[in-house]
């Protein structure tokens, strides 16, 4: 049997909102250690890697490893039926055809059950090696979301250049161009407002706005986002999910023709 309970559905609701633009379906790998998802978008340009540790759940039981193929659109619809304060329980039996979502209101007076059919999926797991990146930037997630949104008006791609001085985002298009520079924070009053750059060597990479704007849907999950970059390799954009896990997005860079 598999059973995982969160005291508040808000986290799971936010996770679904953070992946629904990129994924139509995904396999949820459930084991003793927790729930993991690794899935590419249809175009194979980006990859979502989600990790929710079992010790972050209020209750977690997984008698045997399960791979459950889920339709993300349906799952999002179901999670939207839960109030943020509802307790959410995921339940499946061994060799399941279905997964059950159970929402219980705080006063325990309303109990909702939604059963979703699982789907068979071909899995294509990418082996992503541990990488030391040339630049690792931590910055406010809302600021990153704002920059992606603002610059998307000017072009289809954003160039990110990172040096010791700071991080510069540039977009150029038919109607003009725009660039936004953020300096490393000298002294941040609040940790979540800091811009921190850990640089081994400068990096300049170009990425499609469309995907960056999908990644920033994870903004409600965490006050800070971590961007890891090296020359000519995919960007890693990471959001912590409370003390339960993280979501990482990988995005292949655009390369000059």
């Amino acid at each position: 049997m598999f059973e995982a309970r969160l005291a508040q559905s808000a986290i799971l609701k936010k996770v679904l909102e953070a992946v629904k633009d990129l994924l139509t379906e995904a396999t949820f790998e459930c084991s003793d250690s927790g729930i993991q998802v690794q899935a590419m978008d249809n175009a194979h340009v980006s990859l979502v890697s989600l990790n929710l540790r079992s010790d972050g759940f209020d209750k977690y039981r997984c008698d045997r490893n399960l791979s459950m193929g889920m339709n993300i659109g349906t799952m999002t619809k179901i999670l939207r039926c839960a109030s943020s304060e509802d307790t959410v329980t995921l339940r499946a039996w061994d060799n399941p055809d279905n997964i059950i979502f159970i929402f219980e209101s705080q006063n325990k007076e309303k109990l909702s059950e939604y059963e979703m059919k699982l789907i068979n999926m071909d899995q294509e797991h990418l082996g992503i090696p541990e990488t030391v990146y040339s630049c690792v930037v931590k910055m406010p997630s809302q600021e990153f979301a704002r920059i992606c949104k603002d610059l998307s008006q000017f072009g289809e791609a954003i160039t990110i250049a990172c040096s010791k001085e700071g991080i510069k985002f540039t977009a150029a298009g038919d109607y003009g161009n725009a660039n936004i520079k953020l300096a490393q924070t000298a002294e941040a009053d609040k940790e979540e407002e800091a811009v921190i750059i850990d640089m081994q060597e400068p990096v300049k990479l170009t990425f499609a706005c469309r995907y960056l704007n999908s990644f920033v849907k994870a903004t409600p999950l965490c006050a800070q986002v971590k961007l890891s970059m090296s020359g000519d390799v995919p960007l890693v954009c990471e959001y912590q999910i409370g003390d339960i896990g993280h979501i990482r997005y990988y995005l292949a860079p655009k390369i000059d023709d």
Binding site: H44, G127, L251, A252, P253, I255
Partner: peptide, 14 residues
């Protein structure tokens, strides 16, 4: 114009 890469050019299927 820069060309969009495929993620599978960077990572192999495990």
């Amino acid at each position: 114009t820069p060309v969009q890469n495929d993620l599978q050019e960077f990572y192999t299927i495990a």
